[in-house]
Nucleic acid binder design. Structure first.
Lengths: 144, 144
DNA sequence: TTGCATCCGGTACCTGAGTACAGGCTTACC
DNA sequence: GGTAAGCCTGTACTCAGGTACCGGATGCAA
């Protein structure tokens, strides 16, 4: 019930103090109350919100997307045109599945290169029998 | 046989001119000859090298790693203590497999959240039945 | 009231892989 | 020799998600 200070919240949520202020700037955390001297005073709920943020990040949501998720949660009574959590999770699932597919191709290609015993990339590029994809691979874009 | 100019190489390899100079700075491309006026003149081989670089990137190697691969290829007659292409590919394969495993956990978690019909993250975090991992997920680090 | 831990805002820096822009020079072709 | 396209160097910026540092102010306990 008594407010928490920056350092306490940071420790409880396992994040850096700077990160706390960063999230505030990004709009992920509401601006907390202040002491007379200007020090932030958080409520317990903030720790929960931070854990939610971290969980969503681990699921592959960007901070902008997490901001959207939290926004949705806050006033989902209002407009109906904003996507539900379910809808967003569904989209994210599709993204993750695509990345899994891409990564599977990469894995198979690496295995093929190992099986073929490739040992010099530049030489390989000049021999037609090499399994390495010098022209293209599935989805050239965003191979994080 | 006649030298290629920057724009020709860039077009042939499908990269940006700036990227060419960037790779030169990073040591991925050797410094080419110059005209009297200072314009770069590349040989055909350069296009092959660029394709090799792009292929390696698609397989998940960073530019630093690609530089290492090319270095290995260049003078593998010298010291034997540098890892072979095979060894590096093996290590990269392990990394890729780890990322696949992590991403699989993420996918399964998203599916579980969808199945459970989660609809408000902050509310979820306070109910013990929610499948979302508010404390941890496999490998908190580097979830690109 | 003194001392130390903590916190404040602001700014700059980090990684990785490029991209953009400014202002000036070169090359190629007619 | 004129003109347009292309190229040169150098610097700064992009994205994402933070982290680090600074000089100064506050909070709290002895």
């Amino acid at each position: 019930m008594t407010g928490l200070r920056t350092g306490e919240v940071a420790k409880a949520a396992g994040v850096n103090i700077q990160t706390l202020r960063y999230y505030e700037r990004r709009g992920l955390l509401a601006e907390p109350d202040r002491t007379l001297g200007g020090h932030r005073v958080y409520d317990q709920q903030t720790v929960t919100v931070l854990k939610v943020i971290k969980a969503a990040q681990r699921l592959g949501f960007t901070l902008d997307e997490v901001a959207g998720l939290l926004e949705t949660a806050r006033h989902r009574h209002g407009r109906k045109n904003s996507k539900s959590l379910q809808a967003r999770a569904q989209l994210k699932l599709a993204e993750v599945e695509q990345r899994l597919a891409d990564l599977t191709v990469v894995r198979d290609t690496l295995r093929a290169a190992l099986d073929a015993g490739c040992d010099d990339l530049v030489a390989c590029a000049n021999t037609p029998c090499c399994p390495l994809p010098f022209v293209e691979l599935a989805r050239p874009e965003e191979q994080a």
